[in-house]
Nucleic acid binder design. Structure first.
Length: 577
DNA sequence: GCCGTTTTCGGCCCGACTGTTTTCAGTCG
């Protein structure tokens, strides 16, 4: 079960989709989408808000507030249920396929009776869309590709959703009588970019009450299997959670075993075998006598194998065991090392919250500095102007100093055009404390063109950070085709940092790309790209991704003290302020 | 359906890309 905010967000988004599919008022549709997003991103639990606070959320007026209250009170909204009767659920599913929108989804249903992705695939394979207006050969190819991309992430959920679900489960299980410890392991603990299921671990002498608490959780829709030490359940959306209960004295061995990855565990067990030991989820044992020599903590298990404790984000069998044996395991950057966020938005462009609110929330996170980087004019939909950004700068300078320990930086997120140019000439860019530059369009250019444009952006003396480098959206859009080696070399040469974007649907560049970039001596900036106060916390997923790319503190510019950061932002002798 | 230094009506995200419907609709950011 999701937070009420997310439930309402999903419901309002569904209503907006239904309006679009049935050809309703486009402005009404957008009003619902806007409200859905605002509620989903709202920092407070909407179930705790009174009517007045509810309507204070931007985009929520009388009618939507009434529907939200109706939902919170009764669990349903009559207007939504009514419009559902006109459109089979599968038609909405079609809309989620990239290149299909409400119009095409409705055409498929009305003209061919197609009401699910499976039916669509069948029809495509059987040439069943021949002659259908708007579905030529290229469109059909694009649809199939879109379905492919979607299915690659099939059934896996993004890190933020998985984390919330796991948090809720752990909190509930930990309250069970006799439960000494509870934590999540598996790919979520390793912070893989998507999670296929959640592996939970609990320590208790008597597993029964713990299992009981688990199956009684509100999020459980179905119990798949229930045994004395292992139970599997499914949520209403079909997502699986497994709970394993271990004796408290085997906690460390169990956590090590169930964190994986499988490939990492095989390497570790090989070491155990060579030392005439045996490692299982119950502990590290002497092979001959069967005597247990370590199990209580992960540190103890690794230590008895002659290894330092290896952070979970590194346990992917990418050479971490060999590096650990040589004593050359990098100490990965942690969330505590982060001194500030260098890519964030406000309601001046597409953010939800005001400058003041964002700054206050950033200060509450204990940052030493914080950059506001709203979009620039080239992203036309944002309607940015020089006047607006200068007015924002004035407000920001006035705010600077209100939060004693945090300094404010005024930045912008520029758009990199197909040729590698960015918004605004150099004399205007010189007025910003820092410039992020990112690709937002022309994803289809060929490899040479993409490489050229990104190198050109790095060479711009005012561009400090390349934002979401490949522009991929997990499960939605593959990244652009680009020679990353060439771009990383240019970034290192020009003193341009590469962002690790922490937004859970981006995590861009991904871990493998970061590993590649390190070889060029690239500097990084780990950012939330927050569009609301509630998203500042996605920094943790950026840090997790950075760790998976073996980044250390010194390689990350926003772990540096402000003076060192400012020096880096001057980008060499060309630019003096 | 929301919103208001344009305040209870009349605007609201605009422009580009893509494929195809030979003049534009649909999708996307």
């Amino acid at each position: 079960m999701a937070r009420p905010n997310e439930e309402v967000e999903a419901l309002l988004q569904e209503y907006a989709d239904l309006i679009a599919i049935t050809g309703g008022d486009a402005f009404k549709q957008r009003a619902y989408e806007r409200a859905a997003r605002a509620i989903g991103r709202h920092a407070e639990d909407i179930a705790t808000l009174d009517a007045k606070s509810l309507r204070a959320i931007p985009g929520v007026g009388r009618s939507i507030a009434d529907k939200v209250e109706e939902y919170l009170r009764t669990g349903r909204v009559a207007a939504v249920e009514e419009s559902r009767t006109a459109v089979p659920p599968g038609v909405r599913e079609l809309m989620r396929v990239p290149t299909l929108g409400p119009k095409k989804a409705m055409t498929l249903y009305r003209e061919r009776g197609i009401a699910s992705v499976d039916e669509l695939v069948t029809a495509l394979r059987a040439d069943g869309l021949d002659g259908l207006k708007g579905f030529g050969p290229k469109s059909r190819e694009n649809i199939l590709h879109g379905i492919d991309v979607q299915r690659q992430s099939g059934g896996r959920v993004l890190l933020d959703a998985a984390t919330r679900l796991a948090d809720e489960a752990v909190a509930g299980i930990a309250r069970a009588p006799g439960c000494e410890r509870c934590a999540w392991a598996g790919s979520l603990r390793r912070m893989r970019e998507t999670v296929g299921d959640i592996d939970l671990l609990a320590a208790a002498d008597d597993p029964e009450p713990v299992m009981e608490a688990f199956t009684a959780l509100p999020l459980v829709a179905e119990v798949i299997a229930r045994g004395p030490t292992k139970t599997s359940v499914r949520t209403a959306t079909g997502f699986q959670l497994d709970l394993r209960v271990l004796p408290p004295d085997a906690w460390g061995a169990g956590l090590q075993y169930f964190t994986g990855s499988q490939a990492h565990n095989i390497r570790v067990r090989e070491i155990a075998v060579r030392k005439k030991l045996k490692l299982s989820e119950y502990g590290l044992f002497e092979a001959e006598s069967g005597k247990r020599i370590a199990a209580r903590t992960e540190e103890e298990v690794y230590e008895r194998l002659g290894l330092p404790w290896i952070p979970p984000t590194l346990r992917e069998d990418r050479g971490e065991v060999a590096a650990a044996l040589r004593g050359e395991l990098p100490e990965p950057v942690t969330e505590d090392d982060i001194r500030g966020d260098l890519h964030t938005h406000t309601d001046l462009t597409d953010g939800l919250d005001t400058l003041e609110d964002m700054v206050r929330a950033a200060a509450a996170r204990g940052y030493a500095y914080y950059a506001v980087t709203d979009h620039a004019p080239e992203l036309r939909m944002q309607r940015m102007t020089r006047e607006k950004t200068l007015a924002q700068r004035e407000r920001l300078r006035a705010l600077d100093g209100e939060h004693r320990r945090m300094r404010l930086l005024h930045g912008t997120e520029l758009n990199i055009d197909p040729e590698g140019n960015v918004d605004w000439p150099g004399d205007f860019l010189a007025g910003f404390d820092l410039c992020v530059a990112s690709v937002h369009s022309h994803f289809g250019l060929d490899r040479d063109a993409q490489t050229r444009r990104l190198i050109r952006a790095c060479e711009n003396p005012y561009v400090n950070i390349i934002g979401h480098l490949t522009t991929r959206k997990i499960g939605r859009r593959a990244g652009i085709d680009v020679d990353l080696d060439a771009v990383f070399a240019a970034a290192a040469r020009t003193g341009t940092a590469v962002e690790v974007n922490g937004h859970p649907n981006r995590l861009d560049p991904r871990d493998e790309h970061i590993l590649l970039a390190r070889r060029h001596g690239v500097r990084f900036s780990i950012d939330s790209d927050a569009h609301a106060t509630a998203e500042l916390g996605t920094m943790r997923f950026g840090v997790g991704t950075a760790q998976r790319g073996w980044l250390t503190k010194d390689e990350v510019i926003n772990t540096w003290p402000l003076t060192r950061l400012r020096h880096f932002l001057k980008k060499g002798p060309k630019r003096r302020r």
